[in-house]
């Protein structure tokens, strides 16, 4: 499903002394089936933007089209349906768990969708397995007895069970250790590859962004500054730094090496790519 954002403005507390314009004329078309990373420092408007994409907050002006349908110009029932097409996982999603068992909690979304029982059951099982948990072992456990990382994954499963065409995740790895982080991002990528859904990942880690994203949307002071491939976006090293952002460590290294070895490709972001490129240019036996 494609999401088209047109002239989107959002002003908080308009007319009061606390008036604050969080979004300024955003125009972006998010392609179907892309893995998009949304980056920007805290307060740049990322959270406000993603809450518009499933109609949780209304724009001051402008709108969002989901497959051509204006999501703010439809009945309330249809708006709720939109929320099933565009699944949003908030930061620290484990704070929204409330049911007695994991299976019941994951079923909350599908139940709201009023699906038949057997389909709910099938989706719950699928979603719990999708986030890398053992359905048989965990389904009857209280979500409050799980570890932090497991609670996080159950909460994400609660959104996945709605089978959203667009999956938005607001810093899904915040507060997790490296193992938990790799686990969650790995599962999201696996799902993306299998289902070809659109993924929008809000992240502060340029390393994760460089590793997973096909496109990067950069927000700064309520504006969408860049929307392009990682290669293109990360070429703006100086501009990104001025916005309080950075590029992956590997990009900095390759840029520094390019001064010595002009033939080196410096559009690389992962350690593995860097190794291959260094070995290609410097030669395998160079330093032996």
């Amino acid at each position: 499903m494609s999401l088209k954002i047109e002239h989107l403005d959002h002003i908080y507390a308009a007319g009061s002394p606390f008036e604050f314009q969080a979004l300024k004329d955003i125009n972006v078309e998010l392609e179907d089936g892309c893995f998009i990373a949304l980056i920007g420092h805290t307060g740049s408007g990322k959270s406000t933007l993603i809450q518009h994409l499933n109609g949780l907050i209304e724009p001051t002006s402008g709108t969002v089209y989901l497959d051509g349908q204006d999501i703010f110009d439809q009945s309330k029932e249809d708006l709720i349906k939109t929320r099933f097409s565009v699944g949003l996982v908030f930061q620290y999603p484990e704070h929204q768990l409330f049911e007695e068992t994991v299976a019941k909690d994951v079923a909350y979304g599908p139940k709201n969708l009023k699906l038949p029982e057997d389909e709910i059951h099938e989706r719950v099982k699928w979603a719990i397995e999708m986030v890398g948990l053992d359905y048989g072992k965990i389904k009857d456990v209280s979500p409050f007895e799980l570890s932090g990382g497991q609670m996080r994954r159950v909460a994400i499963a609660g959104v996945l069970a709605m089978r959203p065409k667009v999956l938005i995740l607001d810093e899904p790895t915040a507060g997790l250790d490296p193992h938990g982080r790799d686990m969650i991002l790995g599962q999201i990528q696996k799902l993306h590859k299998a289902a070809h859904n659109t993924v929008i990942l809000v992240s502060h880690s340029m390393e994760d962004v460089g590793r997973y994203a096909d496109r990067i949307l950069v927000m700064y002071h309520g504006k969408a500054v860049y929307y392009d491939t990682p290669t293109q976006v990360f070429r703006h090293v100086d501009e990104l730094e001025k916005m309080g952002l950075a590029v992956p460590q590997v990009k900095y290294l390759m840029r520094a090496l390019k001064k010595q070895y002009p033939e080196i490709n410096d559009d690389l972001f992962t350690v593995e790519d860097a190794r291959d490129e260094i070995e290609r240019v410097l030669g395998r036996e160079h330093h032996v």
Binding site: Q51, N54, L56, K76, I80, R83, F84, G87, L88, V89, F90, P93, H95, Q96, F98, Y108, G109, N112, L113, G158, V159, M162
Partner: peptide, 26 residues
């Protein structure tokens, strides 16, 4: 929390009094 549950399709505005009260549990 309200927004997160709305994102999972929660509906706090329709239904009778009991349904609405139930909708508050999440």
């Amino acid at each position: 929390i309200i927004k997160a549950q709305k994102a999972r399709g929660a509906d706090f505005e329709t239904g009778n009094l009991i349904e609405r009260a139930k909708a508050l549990i999440p």
